[in-house]
Design a protein around this nucleic acid. Structure first.
Lengths: 206, 206
DNA sequence: CGATCCATCTGAACAACGCTTAGATAACAT
DNA sequence: ATGTTATCTAAGCGTTGTTCAGATGGATCG
């Protein structure tokens, strides 16, 4: 894997599409979503403004690639959170906390992920197959046991996902800062809200 | 394209700031958020591209004004929903449905409302005083009775708001269309998800 | 009534943007 | 070696947000 070496770049870059996505993520982290222009990405990657068009149809398609990396990273974060807990309910909560934490740690990336989804009126397909959504679904299924219908399972997953996404976008507002401080930090706040959502009310009869 | 009134406008418009906000909302509804440029708004209002700068510091401030109108409209929608129900729990659900319905009926406006909030890392102040947030809070307070702490009340309101916002943004994705059809339409879907969120689990001991 | 002030609006300009086109360059295949 | 194809550059188009000097006209005060 040829890493981006400072070695004077040849006329043909070698792996420009990869370099462009990385440049985009770098810009996102440092300068925010507003600074993410195609020209800035090209500049950061050290190529002409027209070069990206040989690898991506337009700006949207580059953002799609960035978003895809985001979803993969989110999958990994959720997977890790799922393995760190043993109790069913605790596992569900830590899944939610991990989700929101990811969104709060990568706000620009998270925004790109959902903006891309919104433009296509659909979440990425990969999610339904083996991605983050499926992880939540499986966790709920395991917690709920056998007696739960397919529809209820789907609804519970959607409910949990909506709660996570909503909290991910809302928890950054400074109106909630005093409450966060009162509860002892961000994570305690997240747990408290998740607790009030009572996402397990439907299945929790133990 | 949509021409302004042929009535020869005087050099001084009279109430341009108002006209600009209305023009912006018109563009939002018909052509979507991507078409909402300051120049397009000026064009729609029949005025030069520089004219808006005598009424708004920059594009963001015009969007703020548009967003403000959106919050006022949302307040009204929630108020109406709150009055249409008598039972506490039913009132809460219909509040949630009204919220999501507003977002789904005015997607571009709703997006502007939250984009503006995100840029300022804060929801509009008016919300805390007498706006939509307060309505949700009061509804929950009434449903929960007297024995509920201030913190729990705040947490429950945040939880409900997060759920509403999350569902508002997620319910448009086409992955959920088959489930919506299965449940008998959008509203049934919303109610089912809210039911699974069990936002009342904490207070509903009756 | 007339002169003046000042908010308002225009026209022209700037830099930056997304994107296209024509042409240069390098890798690869035959 | 030759031709083909993928990749990149340079230049340019139309658009955007924003600024600025100057035109306009309603309001205020003599």
């Amino acid at each position: 894997m040829t890493l981006a070496q400072p070695e004077a770049r040849p006329y043909h870059h070698g792996d420009l599409s990869r370099a462009l996505v990385e440049a985009a993520r770098r810009i996102l982290e440092t300068d925010g979503p507003a600074a993410l222009s195609l020209r800035a990405v090209a500049r950061e990657a050290g190529v002409s403004p027209a070069a990206p068009y040989h690898h991506f149809k337009d700006k949207g398609q580059l953002l799609d690639a960035v978003a895809h990396e985001g979803w993969v990273a989110l999958d990994a974060a959720l997977m890790k959170a799922r393995q760190d807990s043993d109790d069913d309910r605790r596992r569900m909560t830590s899944l939610g906390v991990a989700y929101v934490t990811f969104a709060r740690d990568n706000p620009a990336l998270y925004r790109v992920m959902y903006d891309c989804s919104r433009d296509k009126d659909a979440l990425p397909d990969q999610m339904k197959e083996e991605g983050a959504y499926c992880q939540v679904r499986n966790t709920i299924a395991h917690a709920a046991g056998d007696g739960v219908s397919e529809i209820d399972l789907e609804l519970a997953t959607i409910a949990a996902w909506c709660a996570g996404h909503g909290l991910a976008e809302m928890s950054g507002f400074k109106q909630f800062e005093s409450l966060k401080a009162l509860l002892g930090g961000e994570e305690a706040f997240l747990k408290a809200v998740f607790d009030h959502l009572g996402m397990f009310a439907k299945f929790d009869r133990g």
